[in-house]
Computed example of a mutant assay.
Amino acid sequence: MAQQEQVTNKICTLANLVSAVRLCMVPAYLVLLLDGHDVLAAFMFALAASTDFVDGQLARRTHTVSRLGQLLDPAVDRLLMIAGVLGLLLVGRLPLWIIVVVIVRDLFLLCGAAYLLRFQKRVAVIYLGKVATTFLFIGFAGLLLNLPLIPGLGVCDIAWLPGFNGESVSWGIWFVYVGLALALVTTVVYVSCGVAALKEARCERAAISCD
């Protein structure tokens, strides 16, 4: 197990190649969606999202966990998330408030991770965060397909709450709501872990300066 957890400075690894391919799928998805190819766009997005675990598993099983991979893997996830909501906004299938919440959260986490790296610290991805991302990705894929449409609950007349109003909407919206709730919970956890890591880094620096 200890050998599996060793981190290298290698760049050319199979896991990093998979991450790079997934990164290339992001603009491909946007081009397909904006050209009106809903099914192909949904397939490209689903393929990029469903291979999320592949690069991490490859790195661990081949003992090639790298510093680049530790940055690239979550960065691709964040870019795919941002591209997913932006694309759905451009085609009018997600309300603006969901896009704002997703993008602000992801940019906040990216900036926080970059700041921690200045102190040679990072917060490991937690399992609940992966679950939240999975729900969001499934929901986005459903909204991209835009079928089958199901009637809304009709509990309100608010246009920016699809699924709760009476308008028919893709089943994917319910996965988005669950994923969004879980994502907000994990944000609190990440912030807590980040603050703890920052305090640890400052204590280490203080100890070194005293020596």
Rank of each mutant, 00 (worst) to 15 (best):
A83S: 11
L117E: 06
G129W: 03
G84N: 05
L72R: 01
L80G: 15
V195W: 15
Q4S: 10
Q4K: 12
P95E: 12
S50F: 14
L33T: 05
A41F: 08
G166D: 02
G152R: 07
I11F: 15
V104K: 06
C156V: 14
R22D: 06
G194W: 03
S192W: 12
N165W: 06
A201F: 06
L198V: 05
R60P: 00
W97L: 11
M1G: 10
A183K: 07
C24I: 11
S170L: 02
A20H: 08
V54C: 05
L147K: 13
G194P: 01
A206D: 07
L79W: 08
L14Y: 07
V91T: 13
V7W: 08
D211F: 00
L33Y: 08
Q57P: 00
V178W: 12
L145H: 01
V85C: 03
A28Y: 02
I158M: 11
G172N: 02
K10T: 10
T62R: 14
T62I: 03
T134L: 15
N9T: 12
M25D: 05
L86T: 05
P27T: 06
V65T: 14
R78I: 08
T51V: 01
C210A: 14
G152T: 11
P162E: 11
E167T: 09
V123W: 13
L107C: 13
P95N: 09
S168M: 09
D211V: 04
A207G: 03
M44K: 00
